[in-house]
Design a protein around this nucleic acid. Structure first.
Length: 770
DNA sequence: CAGTGAGCGAGCTTCCGCTTGACTT
C-alpha cells in the first residue's frame, strides 16, 4: 500500500511530479473540477441563502470513483490543486466528495513544477482556506444566475437558443461597438510632404529621405508649399544624436502567446491552444494556461547558460518580470520551454513553429537591451521657416533583437528608418525630388480573435482557460463572424516637384482589405442593443472588475458570500421579470422602401430563423412574402435593390435528365435541386446568375463527390445506405443515422443486416457540446 | 439536410472555469 496520495489538476503535471517524489507517493489528477451545478436547471436554492446544488457530471464519475478508492487506502491525502480561487474550490470539493477527514488531509501549493518547489511545498502544508472557497462559490453562483436568467429572456424576446453571460456578452459588445465606430467614422485626408535630398560624400552622391512634420489639409496649400520650394536652397541647420534602448518583452502568458501566434504564425486562438496543449503533454513546454510572466530560478539559470553559450556574456541579462495586470492569479509559471537547451523539437510543423516562438521569446526575455542611436537632422529651407526632418536609426548593439522582436497589431503604420550618412551642420543639400501625397485617416481597426482576447484581458474579463472557448462561443452563437473582406480601390492625389517643375496625378491604392477579422452579425448587434438598453450594469466594461473586488473581500473574510449575491440578485431578478412583462419581442425592423412591382412596403428584420426581408404587412389579410438575408449582407446596411434581389430565388432553370432543375436557397445556403436531390452551391457560384449549363456541370461533379461517400446503396423504400463518414462507415435510413457495431464486415452487409442493426439501436443523437 | 416566417404548446436551448479524452456523422 502506498502511504501518500497527491492530487493535482492535470494528468501531465501528475506524471512529472511523480518523478520528483519518492515511491511513498502516488500522484493522481482530478482533471479539473469534479463537481458543478447541474446544467439542466438553475441548481441554486435561492430561498435557502443561495445554496448551490452540486452534481458530479457523468464524465467525472469514473475519476471520482478511482480517487475515492485510492483515498480510502492511503494514510495522507495531499491536495495540490492550483493556488487560486478555482484551485482552492477543487480541493474543497475533493474533501467533500472523497469524504476526507481533516486529520489526514493536507493542502499544499506550488507555482512551478520543480523538485525543489514540490519538496518545499510538502514541508509546508496548510488547511483549506474556506474564505477563498466561498469567493469561488460566489463567482460560480453569480455567473449561473446571470447566464441562466438572461439567456431565457433572449429566447422569448429575440430568438431561441441564444445565450448571454458576464463574459461573452461583453466580448460581443466590444465587437459591435467597434463596428459602429467604423460605420460612423468619417475619413479625412491631408497632404504629407516628403523629400529626397542629395548630399555629396567623397564625390559620391547620397540620397537622404526627409519629411515635413506639418501636413497640409488641402491640395492648394500643398501646391503653394511646393511652389515655394522650387527656388529654395536647403541647408542642414541642426543634428541631434540621442542614444536609445529597447528592452525585450516578458515571457509568454496565454494571452500574449495567442496574440503573437496570431500575428507571426497566423494561428487562430483555438489552434494555438490545441498545439500548445500537445507541446505540454509531450513535456516540451510548461503549462499553457497562465497569466504569470514569472520564470522559475531553474529556468533563469538555464536561460543564462544558453544565452552565454550561444551569443556570449554581453548578451545575457537576467530579468525577473512582474505582471501589471489586475486580477492576475499567477498560479503557474510563464509559458516557457521545459528545457531551454532544446533549441528545436521533433513533431509536425505547427508544433515546431509554436515551440520556436516560445523558445525565442523566453530566451530573448533574458537577454540584454538593444542599444540604438537615433539621429534627427533638421534641414532649413531658404524660402520658408518650415524645416524638413531626416531621421535615422543605427543599431549599436543588437542585444535581444538578435533572437526575437515582438510584433504589433499595426506594423504597417511604421515606416522603417534608414541609416543616415555622416553629415555636418551648415552642409548644403540639393533637392532631387519633393512630393505631396494625399494620406487618409485610418478608421479604428477591427478585432482579430487575438486582439479581442488582449482587450478582454485588459478589462480583467475571462481567464486564461476561457479565452479560447469564449471566442469560439460567440462565433457559434452567431453573434460574431470571422471573415476576410476584399478591399476597394481609392484614388489619391500626388504632386511631385522635380527639376523645378510640379507635376500632378491621380493614383489608385487598394485599401480596407481585412483578413480574419471579427464582424458582428445582425443578431449580435440586436442582442447587444437589447442587453445594453436593459442591463447596462452587467454589460458595463467594469462589471467584472467591480464584482472581482467583492470576491476579493469575501476571500479576505471581510464579506459573506451569499450576502453579496443577495444584494446583487434581487434587483437584477426584478429587472428581468420587469422586462419579461413589459418588453415586446425585438426584431430590429427597418423599413427599406416600397416594392415597385406590388407597391407594398419592404422591411428587413430578424425572424425566427435569422435576418429576413418582408414584402407586405404582417397584419394584412394577404400573407407577406419572405426571403432570408443571405451571407455577406446585413440588415443594417442592405439596400432596397439588394433586398428585392433576394426574391429572385427559387429560380427554375429548366429540365435535366427529365427532372426539373431549380436554384434556391435554404438554411444551409444556396443549392441546386434536381428532382428530389439537393446539391450545395459552392461559394464561388452566384445563385442569381448561374446558367443551366453551369448548373448541370456542377450536378455531375457534385453527384460524383456525393456518390464517392456512399459505400452501399440498397435502393430500398427506406433509402438504406452505408455511407463513409469522418469516423468510419455508418448506416443512413429515413433521414436518420445509425452506428455500425464494431467487428462488422462492411463488404458483406445485406439490407437485412442493416435493418437488424437499425432495430437494435436507437438512432445516434447529436450529443450537445459546448 | 434544404425553399420556413400565423398561433399554440410541448420540449429544447443557456452561464464561467477547471481539465482531457470519448465521441461525434
Amino acid at each position: 500500500m502506498i502511504k501518500n496520495l497527491v492530487i493535482v489538476e492535470s494528468p501531465a503535471k501528475a506524471k512529472t511530479i511523480e518523478r520528483f517524489l519518492g515511491s511513498d507517493f502516488q500522484v493522481k489528477s482530478s482533471y479539473g473540477h469534479i463537481r458543478d451545478l447541474s446544467e439542466k436547471e438553475l441548481g441554486i436554492d435561492i430561498r435557502e441563502g443561495f445554496t448551490p446544488r452540486y452534481v458530479i457530471p457523468a464524465e467525472k464519475k469514473k475519476v471520482v470513483t478511482e480517487l475515492k478508492k485510492l483515498a480510502g487506502e492511503t494514510e495522507v491525502v495531499w491536495l495540490a490543486s492550483d493556488e487560486d480561487r478555482e484551485g482552492e474550490a477543487i480541493a474543497w470539493h475533493l474533501t467533500e466528495i472523497l469524504e476526507l477527514d481533516e486529520a489526514r488531509t493536507q493542502r499544499i501549493v506550488f507555482h512551478e513544477i520543480t523538485k525543489m518547489a514540490i519538496t518545499e511545498a510538502i514541508k509546508n502544508p496548510r488547511k483549506i482556506d474556506q474564505n477563498l472557497v466561498q469567493a469561488q462559490q460566489a463567482r460560480r453562483v453569480l455567473d449561473r444566475l446571470v447566464g441562466y436568467e438572461l439567456s431565457p429572456l433572449l429566447w422569448k424576446k429575440v430568438k431561441p437558443a441564444l445565450s448571454a453571460g458576464r463574459v461573452q456578452s461583453v466580448a460581443v459588445r466590444l465587437v459591435v461597438e467597434r463596428e459602429n465606430e467604423i460605420r460612423n467614422f468619417r475619413v479625412s485626408s491631408a497632404f504629407r510632404i516628403t523629400a529626397k535630398l542629395l548630399a555629396i560624400k567623397d564625390g559620391q552622391p547620397m540620397i537622404i529621405q526627409a519629411e515635413l512634420p506639418k501636413r497640409f489639409s488641402t491640395r492648394d496649400e500643398a501646391y503653394r508649399f511646393l511652389e515655394k520650394c522650387k527656388q529654395a536652397s536647403f541647408q542642414i541647420d541642426n543634428i541631434e544624436t540621442k542614444p536609445a534602448k529597447k528592452s525585450p518583452a516578458p515571457p509568454f502568458t496565454t494571452s500574449t502567446l495567442q496574440q503573437e501566434a496570431s500575428r507571426k504564425l497566423g494561428f487562430s486562438v483555438a489552434n494555438t491552444m490545441r498545439v500548445a496543449q500537445q507541446l505540454y503533454e509531450d513535456g516540451k513546454i510548461t503549462y499553457m494556461r497562465t497569466d504569470s510572466v514569472n520564470l522559475s530560478k531553474f529556468a533563469l539559470a538555464q536561460a543564462k547558460e544558453e544565452v552565454v553559450k550561444l551569443f556570449g556574456k554581453e548578451y545575457s541579462k537576467t530579468r525577473q518580470f512582474t505582471t501589471k495586470l489586475k486580477g492576475a492569479q499567477e498560479a503557474h509559471e510563464a509559458i516557457r520551454p521545459t528545457f531551454l537547451e532544446n533549441r528545436v523539437i521533433e513533431g509536425d510543423n505547427s508544433k515546431k513553429r509554436l515551440y520556436d516562438l516560445i523558445w525565442k521569446r523566453t530566451i530573448a526575455s533574458q537577454m540584454s537591451d538593444a542599444q540604438i542611436e537615433k539621429t534627427s537632422v533638421s534641414i532649413s529651407i531658404s524660402t520658408t521657416s518650415e524645416k524638413l526632418i531626416a531621421s535615422g536609426e543605427v543599431l549599436v548593439f543588437d542585444g535581444f533583437l538578435k533572437v526575437y522582436k515582438e510584433s504589433s497589431d499595426d506594423d504597417d503604420q511604421q515606416e522603417a528608418e534608414g541609416i543616415l550618412p555622416a553629415l555636418s551642420v551648415g552642409e548644403m543639400l540639393k533637392l532631387e525630388e519633393m512630393s505631396a501625397t494625399e494620406r487618409f485617416t485610418q478608421q479604428p481597426a477591427r478585432y482579430t480573435e487575438a486582439s479581442l482576447v488582449k482587450k478582454l484581458e485588459e478589462l480583467g474579463i475571462g481567464r486564461p482557460s476561457t479565452y479560447a472557448p469564449v471566442i469560439s462561443t460567440i462565433q457559434k452563437r452567431g453573434y460574431v463572424v470571422r471573415e476576410d473582406r476584399p478591399g476597394y480601390n481609392r484614388e489619391y492625389q500626388l504632386l511631385v516637384l522635380t527639376k523645378g517643375e510640379i507635376s500632378e496625378e491621380i493614383r489608385n491604392e487598394n485599401t480596407g482589405f481585412e483578413k480574419a477579422k471579427l464582424f458582428p452579425t445582425d443578431i449580435g448587434s440586436l442582442v447587444t442593443d437589447f442587453l445594453v438598453t436593459h442591463f447596462s450594469n452587467i454589460l458595463d466594461y467594469n462589471f467584472t472588475a467591480t464584482v472581482e473586488e467583492e470576491f476579493d473581500e469575501i476571500a479576505m473574510g471581510k464579506r459573506v458570500w451569499n450576502e453579496m449575491i443577495k444584494t446583487f440578485y434581487f434587483p437584477f431578478h426584478e429587472q428581468v421579470e420587469n422586462i419579461q412583462k413589459t418588453s415586446k419581442k425585438v426584431s430590429g425592423t427597418r423599413k427599406l422602401g416600397v416594392d415597385p412591382a406590388s407597391g407594398k412596403n419592404v422591411y428587413v428584420k430578424i425572424g425566427r430563423f435569422g435576418p429576413m426581408v418582408q414584402i407586405g404587412e404582417t397584419e394584412s389579410d394577404e400573407k407577406p412574402r419572405f426571403a432570408g438575408v443571405t451571407r455577406g449582407l446585413s440588415i443594417e446596411d442592405i439596400s432596397l435593390e439588394q433586398a428585392l434581389e433576394l426574391f429572385k430565388l427559387p429560380r427554375p432553370l429548366g429540365q435535366f435528365e427529365e427532372k426539373e432543375v431549380i436554384i434556391g436557397t435554404g438554411r444551409f445556403g444556396p443549392f441546386i435541386k434536381l428532382g428530389s436531390d439537393y446539391f450545395s452551391l459552392p461559394r464561388s457560384e452566384d445563385p442569381y446568375s448561374i446558367t443551366m449549363e453551369r448548373a448541370t456541370e456542377l450536378i455531375l461533379e457534385l453527384r460524383d463527390k456525393k456518390n464517392a461517400g456512399i459505400l452501399k446503396d440498397f435502393s430500398d423504400p427506406h433509402g438504406i445506405k452505408v455511407i463513409k463518414g469522418r469516423w468510419g462507415p455508418y448506416i443512413a435510413a429515413d433521414g436518420k443515422n445509425y452506428r455500425i457495431p464494431k467487428n462488422t464486415e462492411i463488404d458483406t452487409l445485406t439490407p437485412e443486416d442493416c435493418r437488424k442493426i437499425i432495430n437494435e439501436q436507437p438512432p445516434v443523437k447529436g450529443k450537445k457540446r459546448k
